[in-house]
Design a binder for these strands. Structure first.
Length: 817
RNA sequence: GCGGUUGUGGCGGAAUGGCAGACGCGCUAGACUUAGGAUCUAGUGUUGCAAGACGUGGGGGUUCAAGUCCCUUCAACCGCACCA
């Protein structure tokens, strides 16, 4: 028996030599853009997760290719990022060096998968030829007012020593290193993703994406429609001091008659101005304490606390004088940082009001339980009561009417709010694309002219533990001249979030060697959107959201002619350790793919990954499973050797048709095709196994050699996307021409699936009682006649006349008596 | 609390409302053997000697027919979360 792993290199070299993986632009009309998420070159090699993403994706690409599509399947490296720099601080190895070394290792391992990656589209985001255009992207956004700098409270990771985006904060910990995240006030660069909030939300419904990912993005964008209502301050003194009114955001304007106080976030700018002398000490103390405790504690300690400011304001709906409180359950970063509190109809306000003895006034009654009085807090919508002229109105109607009426007197208006924040892209670290901005004392913030790009990272920098960005300490980098006034100026030392690099890489792939432009608009118009994007679910609210935003921004600048980058998205599942837990070094349950690939070869491993799991579910690793696939491929191998040997000894075998074998072949073709289309790899392989079993049976019963050989050749083509190396070798053994991948994927002949006779299940009163064989062409009357004549049917009906007979073609007949 | 997903043999997993458990692992028996992680053959949901009965987390319902649709309930996983 051949050692499969010997085939890997042979055929990889063959594909490379014959340029088989290169996208042919002549066939651009038939393009199929098959994309996987590119790799991050971490020190720890290609892991099982990569394999589980890339191997099945390659099978899909190869399938599409054999179907006649011109498949574009690129691969590159997302090679900037904090881990490389942290590694440098620890070991002294320069990030550029360690990254390049890691890339070399991973490229070797990637080649082991045997995937059809187009070498000419290769890219690395840390290469100046790439980040030149990441910087270009920044300049374009800046030009359009979509990139701006502001002083803002940001998330600062204490371990990574940098700001990170909202999307990268998980449970108040850093997404990368799990260290605590602090709130800090810093001047930072932002991208205005919020300007696209509505479109990002709306277009989700047009995408062929997993419902979970769509839901997560919707949730993240967090649209809520309601209104803003203004509460004028009551005391003249306060009014004079800030000449302002407190504006709140609410989705429940219908409850405005039930407002018994107004709450400001402790950070709200009005707090200091409106607090009375008497309350000052208490308020200051409270604010101080709130800022001191972390966001995490503020979230987990759900008990409501707060302090009265001493100020009062007026409810615009009924003129009531109500107190103004500050409380940490009111968040500064949502809405207006102020809320109207309606204890009767909001759980939080209810709790707070009870604690501080504030009035609770019911203004909504349930519509569902007639006569029955609803318990407080009643948070559903209903009918207004105790609400002046609005009493009796249904909530939704009242919301519209009240906001409309308030607008007339300039005390309110309808308003939509989003939870999405602008994307913070500044990173106080070295290993990223430098932000192409110069700070000039005279001219202020000056963008670097396009012709000066790329602003290259200096190699000679010091990596220390002091938490200071090496770039800001590098005089040769920092000191420059202002592009406007030519006087000496300083470069921006922040670099871009690596998610900026990955938010446009799929646009670069098709034109990866373009030195003057990030991509050619006309070419991109033909190559995108991506037809199938396969990658992990963990990017739902980061990469997958950012990429959509960048695509829309570029579209609006005229560089792109499509709205969405990824038409169809699939997340592969997660492969767990043998113990059923997520693989981790600390658990010691990490499965190293290299071991298996080195032992059994790439194809056996690929096929196990596809057969042993439901692709989108994943599951626990199991060593036994892989041997099953080895056995299967060896069984195929023996079959092919046997058939090819017989062909040599009796080359003039005559064709003798065998319906059953032909049927088995076309059945397999049909279902493998359908299953691959759905990325249902495990069932597709099951159909291949059935076909192999069937061929063996027919060989034993002496079916004609020429038919068997035709079926075997078909089998090899069906197998090719799954086990590309072995299939090439088998194709050659069978005397096939060239690469098996330059052949058409087999096409099912539906006529071959029409049987002369069909077996039907016979039910009596919906219970299976018997089976009958009927001619496929039989009419319903004939089928009924045959079924009623069946012994077991007669027995179970006692010869009674059927009341009703249901016949489902090719499946069953149900006789109701 | 909100949103999403999943519950099927000993195991991984299949089933356009139409014969539940495809395919494979494992297991049992047998064949062949220079004894192997080999190959082949048969069997393998539970229960029964059998005919049969019972079976897709639980409970209801719709239907001639439900793993699949509806209601309800339980459990697990994932995401968001004091979002006004």
């Amino acid at each position: 028996m051949i050692d499969f792993k010997l085939l890997d290199k042979k055929w990889n070299d063959y594909w490379e030599k014959h340029n088989l993986n290169k996208f042919n632009e002549k066939n651009i009309d038939k393009k199929y853009y098959s994309l996987v998420m590119f790799s991050y070159p971490s020190a720890s090699n290609l892991h099982l997760g990569h394999w589980y993403n890339y191997a099945p994706a390659d099978t899909f690409s190869r399938f599409k290719r054999m179907q006649g599509h011109e498949v574009f399947a690129p691969m590159g490296f997302d090679s900037f990022g904090l881990p490389a720099e942290n590694f440098a601080i620890k070991t002294g190895t320069h990030p550029m060096d360690s990254t390049n070394a890691n890339i070399k290792t991973m490229q070797k391992q990637l080649a082991g998968i045997g995937a059809m990656y187009d070498p000419s589209s290769y890219l690395e985001t840390s290469d100046p030829s790439y980040y030149k255009f990441t910087q270009w992207l920044f300049l374009k956004l800046f030009e359009k007012g979509l990139a701006y700098q502001k002083l803002a409270p940001v998330n600062f990771c204490t371990s990574c020593q940098t700001v990170i985006a909202n999307e990268q904060v998980i449970d108040n910990k850093c997404e990368r290193c799990s260290a605590d995240v602090e709130k800090r006030e810093m001047t930072q660069w932002f991208f205005s993703i919020t300007k696209y909030a509505e479109e990002l939300l709306q277009k989700l419904d047009t995408l062929d994406w997993p419902s979970k990912t769509v839901a997560m993005q919707k949730n993240w964008i967090g649209k809520s429609t309601g209104g803003e209502i203004s509460f004028e301050l009551e005391c003249d003194d306060c009014k004079k001091k800030c000449n302002e009114k407190i504006t709140v955001f609410t989705t429940r304007a219908d409850t405005v008659f039930g407002v018994s106080y107004v709450v400001l976030a402790p950070e709200h700018p009005f707090v200091e101005k409106i607090t009375t002398e008497k309350q000052k000490k208490e308020v200051q103390e409270y604010v101080k304490n709130t800022l001191k405790i972390s966001d995490l504690d503020r979230q987990t300690s759900k008990e409501k606390t707060g302090v009265f400011t001493g100020a009062y304001c007026v409810n615009p709906a009924n003129g009531e004088k109500i107190p103004v409180y500050i409380a940490d359950y009111c968040l500064m970063n949502y809405g207006t940082g102020a809320v109207m509190a309606v204890p009767a109809h909001d759980e939080r306000d209810f709790e707070f009001a009870n604690k501080y003895n504030l009035p609770i006034k019911k203004v909504i009654e349930s519509m569902q339980y007639n006569g029955q009085v609803s318990l407080l807090p009643f948070v559903e919508k209903g009918v207004l009561i105790n609400s002046g002229a609005y009493s009796g109105l249904e909530s939704n109607k009242a919301i519209r009417q009240i906001l409309k009426d308030l607008e007339k007197v300039k005390k309110g208006q309808a308003k939509t709010n989003y939870r999405l924040r602008d994307w913070s892209v500044s990173r106080q670290r070295y290993w990223g694309a430098p932000i192409p901005i110069v700070h000039c004392e005279k001219c202020g913030i000056v963008p670097v002219p396009e012709k000066d790009l790329p602003i290259e990272l200096p190699y000679n920098v010091q990596f220390t533990r002091d938490g200071v960005n090496p770039l800001s300490k590098c005089e040769e980098f920092i000191n420059t001249t202002c592009p406007k006034c030519k006087k000496s100026a300083r470069r921006e030392s922040d670099t871009l979030d690596t998610f900026v690099c990955s938010s446009w890489y799929f646009l670069r792939y098709p034109d990866a060697n373009n030195a003057t432009l990030p991509f050619d608009t006309n070419k991109i118009a033909k190559m995108l959107p991506v037809d199938k994007y396969i990658g992990g679910a963990e990017h739902a609210c980061m990469h997958l959201l950012y990429s959509r935003f960048i695509t829309k921004a570029f579209r609006d600048m005229g560089y792109l002619n499509f709205d969405e980058p990824f038409a169809s998205l699939v997340h592969q599942g997660l492969i767990l350790g043998k113990d059923g837990f997520k693989m981790s070094k600390s658990r010691g349950n990490v499965v190293n793919p290299d071991l298996y690939v080195n032992e059994h070869g790439s194809d056996v491993f690929r096929m196990y990954l596809m057969f042993g799991f439901s692709f989108i579910e994943g599951g626990a690793w199991n060593d036994d499973g892989i041997l099953a696939l080895k056995k299967f491929l060896e069984r195929v191998w023996r079959l092919v050797e046997k058939v090819s040997a017989s062909l040599k000894s009796t080359p003039f075998a005559t064709l003798e048709f065998n319906f059953d074998l032909s049927y088995a072949m076309h059945y397999a073709i049909k279902h493998v095709t359908e299953d691959l289309e759905k990325l249902s790899f495990n069932t597709a392989i099951a159909r291949l196994m059935e076909l192999v079993n069937s061929i063996y049976k027919h060989i034993e019963s002496g079916t004609s050699l020429s038919l068997v050989s035709e079926v075997v050749q078909t089998l090899i083509k069906l197998l090719a996307p799954f086990a590309p190396h072995i299939a090439e070798e088998l194709h050659q053994i069978m005397g096939g021409e060239g690469s098996v991948f330059s052949h058409q994927f087999p096409v099912c002949d539906e006529n071959a699936l029409v049987k002369l006779e069909t077996e039907l299940a016979v039910q009596v009163n919906s219970k299976i009682k018997s089976k009958v064989i009927v001619p496929t062409s039989a009419t319903n009357e004939e089928i009924e006649k045959i079924a009623l004549a069946d012994e077991k049917v007669i027995e179970s009906t006692n010869g009674a006349n059927p009341k009703k007979v249901i016949i489902i073609k090719d499946r069953l007949i149900n006789i109701i008596v």
